[in-house]
Design a binder for these strands. Structure first.
Lengths: 182, 182
DNA sequence: TGAAACAGACCGAACGTTCGGTCACACCAA
DNA sequence: TTGGTGTGACCGAACGTTCGGTCTGTTTCA
């Protein structure tokens, strides 16, 4: 038998654990249970252990960010449509009843030294793409950068508030509000 | 010797550890080193261990939030001045080269179940006080609530970006921008 | 002298990790 | 068609380490 679960599928199963518990909080026991495998089997797929698992999860999240959120910003549609599709992508990227930001959780504690640079790269790409759309919508370059930064702040802040309130409402509210911002 | 360090002073020393590492990541070794005490001595001050320490740190942070950020919102000054003083308080509350949100770090993993309700209470009080100022500034009640929510999102989001970028700049930028929002 | 403050040594449990080995299946010569 | 061999997926059990937490004191000062 070749593989009951692909590496990507495995990463998908591990994602919610890292998202909810952070790098240090995601114990091998929790990860094994989420994967439906033993700890030893996890090492068969990720020879370098937890670091490898988190890296795979982060790579998967980066790919999803790229396709769901950033790619729509570069499409040929009108700026308003591009922003709308990208925000739809955000809603799909952060799914679930209590959405959590992997980027946020993974940067608590030890994870910051390990994955900080990767996360920073993804965020920078997102911010730049957003600024491009706002500029295409007619804003001066400096104002477009400011608006892009504000958009990121509001999305990430809303995700924090989602965890505080234990609800999806803050994210949905922020997205609705942001859609009207252009 | 009665006490080389008061409980509040001790909590202040423990704060950066919880802030940077979260609840699970903050090990007793790290906490003891930060306090300048042995693990056994920490248990003298906090009989219930890590839970007590985190609770003390959180209580201290709540008190600082109250005096630095929320109290100014309730003063007799003009709405614009009240907001300005409160944002100054935010800058002082989140000090340091790479400011971190204790509320955010502490809600990753196990901490959410332990302290989620306390944090949610503090945030709700902050949001309500903000909405009061925006309403006093002439906004309709619904719009005031929306603006208050947005302000919180931007501050918390900026703190996330501070950790991503390893810099204090996002917070300062957001505060400057928010000051101009009234 | 009595009590508070503190620390070294220690505990069972859980941590991340590794090892030895089982199992199901693909492949191939007889 | 069959039996032997190879291989990748998988797991139980254990590794050494560190975890949160406790015990038995010694020091310090009113």
């Amino acid at each position: 038998m070749k593989a009951q679960l692909s590496k990507a599928g495995l990463a998908d199963r591990l994602t919610p654990v890292f998202e909810a518990y952070g790098y240090e909080g995601a114990s091998l026991s929790l990860l094994a249970k989420a994967a439906g495998l033993s700890k030893a089997s996890l090492y068969h797929h990720f020879p370098n252990g937890k670091r490898d698992m988190a890296a795979a999860v982060l790579a998967r999240a980066g790919a999803r960010l790229q396709t769901l959120v950033i790619a729509p910003l570069h499409s040929t549609a009108s700026p308003v449509e591009r922003l709308g599709q990208s925000l739809d992508g955000v809603a799909r990227l952060y799914e679930g009843d209590i959405p959590g930001s992997l980027m946020n959780s993974l940067l608590v504690g030890e994870g910051r030294g390990l994955f900080g640079a990767i996360v920073a790269g993804g965020v920078a790409a997102w911010e730049q793409a957003l600024a491009g759309v706002y500029e295409a919508a007619g804003k001066p370059a400096a104002a477009a950068r400011d608006t892009a930064r504000q958009t990121l702040e509001r999305i990430e802040g809303a995700l924090v508030l989602c965890r505080v309130e234990g609800s999806r409402a803050p994210l949905e509210g922020a997205l609705t509000s942001l859609r009207g911002g252009l």
